[in-house]
Design a protein around this nucleic acid. Structure first.
Length: 555
RNA sequence: GCGAGCGUAGUGUAGUGGUUAUCACCGGGCGUUGCCAACGCCUGAACCCGGGUUCGAGUCCCGGCGCUCGCACCA
């Protein structure tokens, strides 16, 4: 960090000009909550839209939108109720609150993995001393969840729920609708852009750790048994900084990283590439971007492998995108919790034919003979070889031995043909923290320079994210210059996808400076000559070059 | 969550119990044949919230909220 106050000046400007501001400030503010202001609002929506367009290029993904209010059961199934909880206990002597698992580290190899009841039992059994006062008396263990609690419905009929901590669960719970939409053909993806909520104990670092945040996630469902053929050639000439787990950082292209086995999965490698392209396109400096593989003990409860895109800015290297291989964890969890099937079907190249030629029980006689054990007897008999002669003694799964006579069995001859099978797809999840990305786009675009010996700041924002596309400036609001400028401004604003800003106050230099400060790429100035020949001055933000263009040729 | 520091116009600030609350940038209006925060005139805007001490509180005390830092925590 080479700060010397840059971060303070940047934050001040972002607030002053209306990019991002503390939310609800007139009421005293609220920690971890921010507004995108008059300037930041459009930047936020442009970046979201650019993200959608970028990933929709895959051609086999769709966007969905799910509620943020989520029933308890959904997040219990996903593991968030368990994983997002800290189990707290309070010292009865000094009232200091401690985490139960931390207190029990001396008494258990991995207390973090214990359930609340187990922690409770172990705590009361071992009575560790309070780190604050040394007393050994503890309150009951209580779960403190990092998700926002709410009630869905009022009073007696209310059911517990949470605000979602991630958008991902919506894609999993909608799996069957996605599966039908894609004509039951994998791979495909569902994606979602929206809000997520985490009731952080200590939000810090401005936009980096928020309690309500914007995320954009893709869940990409794949058949784990079919090889993923991915074209990595678009990144053949793009060296990227990779930090493999327990290895030294390397700079390598994605095709090479995949061939060398640094990245194990072709689709994962491709998603790293698509992510890289996105971040660079919105204005992240490639020199301050890297991908880091998670340590084994760092990965979330669901992940098999995970690479983060980390961006360097005023707060150091910050993870802004997580690209996780979630395996089949989520779909299995929701299957188990609901009893519904969340699977895809793969057809075999050839039908698999199994021929059975052995024994099974004769229900009419074996049933009355073995009663409750009949099921176990059936399993045991069907496991016997064809050459078995009856009567014989078989050992059941429960350890009992029974005598099975000829009258209890019959020959079992059948042919089973299976044309395919149902399986649980694997999931690759690129998850983008939009606010963190916006922060770093702003951070990287913020440029402090000198102009005629004076401090000068400008935002070198790319057109993909610039909050205002054009500023239209009449030199003076007289002799018709103001009216003409207003007409041009209106014409620009009526063009889909464009936003123009009309500014007539202050000197022309001041207005260029104001436009530069919020990153307007192009200024259009109407002067006396415009009244005569219809040409305007088009001025470029980064070079300050001016050219005269006829007003009808602006677009 | 604990500890420390801080909280005054949009921004940065001055202000050690009595001021019409300081200064600068800033914002707005008008003028300017004028093109990179130029200039002139006019003008706008603040003591985080609540309680207490006091004749009197921006200033002292208590609580809350927020910000920063350290510790703890952290998809």
């Amino acid at each position: 960090m080479t700060d010397d106050g840059r971060l303070d000046r940047l934050s001040g400007m972002l607030k002053r000009r209306g990019f991002i501001l503390p939310a609800f400030e007139i009421h005293g503010g609220a920690k971890g909550l921010y507004d995108f202001g008059p300037v930041g609002g459009r930047m936020h929506s442009k970046i979201n839209q650019f993200w959608r367009d970028h990933w929709l290029k895959l051609g086999n993904v769709v966007e969905i939108s799910c509620p943020t209010v989520t029933p308890y059961a959904v997040l219990e199934a996903s593991g968030h109720v368990g994983e997002f909880s800290d189990f707290m206990t309070q010292c009865l002597n000094c009232e200091e609150a401690s985490r139960a698992d931390t207190l029990l580290e001396a008494h258990h190899p991995n207390p973090d993995a214990l359930k609340m009841e187990e922690l409770q039992a172990l705590l009361f059994e071992t009575l560790p001393p309070c780190p604050a006062c040394g007393a050994q008396t503890w309150s009951e263990v209580s779960a403190q969840n990092l998700m926002f609690n709410t009630m869905i419905g009022a009073g007696e009929s209310g059911r517990p729920g949470f605000l979602r901590p991630e958008t991902a669960q919506g894609m999993f719970t909608s799996f069957n609708a996605l599966f039908r939409h894609f004509r039951e053909r994998l791979p495909f993806g569902g994606m979602q852009v929206g809000k997520g909520y985490r009731n952080e104990i200590a939000p810090r670092q401005g936009m980096i750790r928020l309690r309500e945040f914007n995320m954009a996630e893709l869940e990409y469902f794949m058949d784990p048994e079919s090889e993923q053929h991915e074209d990595l050639s678009p990144w053949a000439n793009t060296p990227i900084q990779l930090l493999e787990r327990e290895k030294e950082p390397t700079i390598i292209t994605l095709p090479e990283a995949f061939q060398n086995g640094i990245i194990h999965h072709a689709t994962l490698a491709r998603f790293l590439g698509i992510t890289y392209d996105f971040l660079v396109a919105v204005g992240i400096d490639p020199q301050r971007l890297r991908f880091r593989q998670h340590e084994e003990n760092e990965m979330a409860h669901y992940a098999e492998d995970c690479w983060d895109a980390e961006i360097e800015g005023s707060y150091g290297w910050i993870e802004c995108v997580g690209i996780a291989h979630r395996g089949c964890y989520d779909l299995l969890q929701h299957e188990e919790a609901t009893g519904k099937t969340l699977r895809a079907r793969r057809e075999f190249a050839e039908p698999r034919v199994t021929t059975i030629d052995a024994w099974t029980i004769n229900g009419a006689t074996a049933g009355p003979a073995f009663k409750a054990q009949a099921g176990l007897v059936k399993d045991a008999v069907e496991a016997l070889p064809k050459a078995t002669t009856f009567p014989t003694t078989v050992t059941l799964a429960n350890g009992d031995s029974v005598e099975v006579g000829e009258e209890h069995v019959k020959a079992n001859q059948k042919t089973i043909s299976e044309s395919g099978e149902w399986y649980t797809p694997h999931v690759l999840e690129p998850a983008f923290g939009i606010d963190r990305i916006i922060w770093h786009v702003l951070d990287h675009a913020y440029t402090e320079t000198k102009k005629n010996g004076e401090d000068y700041t400008l935002m070198r924002l790319k057109e993909t994210v610039a909050p205002v596309d054009y500023a239209v400036l009449p030199l003076f609001e007289k002799d018709g210059m103001g009216d003409l400028a207003w007409t041009i401004h209106q014409r620009l604003c009526q063009t889909s996808g464009l936003v123009s800003m009309y500014d007539a106050s202050g000197s022309i230099g001041r207005r260029y400076a104001r436009a530069d400060e919020i990153g307007v790429p192009t200024c259009i100035t109407v002067d006396h000559q415009t009244l005569e020949d219809g040409t305007v001055t088009v001025r470029d933000r980064d070079t300050t070059d001016q050219t005269r263009v006829h007003m009808d040729q602006l677009l």
